[in-house]
């Protein structure tokens, strides 16, 4: 802050008063907007904890006593995880897949696809950043051009290819079809390029080969970027919806009890199920269960995620 000089005491006082008023206004606005941002989460928390029948009553009467603390329980979460949903309005019961199953499917997909994506991205970025070969620029331009192309264009053929490979309802379809990300290659290439050339030459002098240099020098230096990619890729897999809906929605191909759905698709099918009709609180609990793990993940890796996202935003 620069030192400001004022003509007299009055001017200084006016300046200070103005500053206080401005900061009060700033905080008021920012706080109000923060409350707007938090409203859906608060609603989600209250809704998921309220007994399903009381919540249904609440939506019809707007009687806030119905969603008070004394009505709270974990019954909705029990229903979500046991898969036994009793429609307390009609009395009907239905066994649905447990959300634990969705968790497991999503976790396997997320870890698998992240591993494949990171390995392919590191290797490809290394070639583009450090090695010289014919056709490098053409290939790289081609890669960048694909970033413009809407995914729907590729989904059509990929769906058919998946069927021909007999990958439907398998993790292969979920993991390998998106096994490479042009954006991550691009992002990682830029980090690799910032590593000074001298290190490469020094490694050569020491008799370290190209791959050895990548593993021993480049990967450790670029670790923050790689961690960012891992985190973004895990989050992307957790939230993916359209592709799993096409290739792994349910598991009736092999047997009814076999379920391949990921969390988003499982959630969607819960919303659609007749049994959850009128049980909005259970649906909200489902949403909560899908959102919560990512929240915990975010709070643990907050610094990495926010730094990584803002950096990838500027450079991407």
């Amino acid at each position: 802050m620069a030192d400001l000089y004022f003509a007299d005491e009055g001017a200084l006082r006016r300046y200070k008063a103005k500053k206080i008023i401005v900061s009060i206004l700033l905080y008021t606005f920012v706080t109000l907007f923060a409350l707007f941002m938090l409203l859906p989460f608060v609603f989600m928390l209250i809704g998921s904890l309220t007994d399903a029948k009381s919540f249904d009553e609440f939506t019809k009467t707007a009687n806030f006593e119905l969603i008070g603390f004394n009505k709270w329980s974990f019954s909705n979460f029990e229903a979500i995880f046991s898969g036994q949903i009793v429609n307390r309005i009609t009395g009907a019961t239905e066994a649905r897949p447990s959300f634990a199953q969705y968790y497991l499917n999503t976790l396997i997909t997320a870890v698998g696809s992240t591993a494949v994506t990171v390995v392919t991205a590191v290797l490809a970025a290394f070639a583009f950043a450090r090695l010289e070969f014919k056709g490098k620029n053409v290939l790289f331009t081609l890669l960048l051009a694909t970033m413009m192309i809407p995914g729907e264009l590729m989904v059509l053929t990929n769906y058919k290819t998946t069927k021909s490979l007999d990958w439907e309802f398998t993790f292969s379809a979920l993991i390998f079809v998106h096994g490479v990300s042009v954006f991550y290659i691009f992002y990682l290439r830029q980090t690799f390029q910032q590593i000074p050339n001298e290190l490469y030459l020094a490694a050569k002098v020491d008799g370290v080969g190209d791959v050895g240099y990548l593993v021993k020098v480049m990967v450790p230096i670029a670790m923050p970027t790689i961690v960012t990619i891992i985190i973004l890729s895990l989050m992307g897999a957790w939230n993916s919806y359209v592709w799993p809906l096409l290739v792994a929605n349910g598991g009736w191909k092999y047997d009814k009890s076999y379920n391949m759905q990921l969390v988003s698709n499982g959630l969607m099918s819960l919303f659609n199920s007749d049994i959850a009709n009128g049980l909005d609180a259970i649906k909200i609990a489902g949403s909560m269960v899908v959102t919560f793990p990512l929240f915990v993940f975010f709070l643990i890796f907050r610094k990495y995620i926010m730094k990584g996202v803002s950096r990838s935003g500027i450079k991407g």
């Binding site: 609603f43 809704g47 939230n239 959630l267 969607m268 949403s287 899908v290 959102t291």
Partner: peptide, 8 residues
């Protein structure tokens, strides 16, 4: 998750 929040 966009779908979870859409419901909310």
């Amino acid at each position: 998750n966009a779908i979870a929040l859409g419901l909310v």
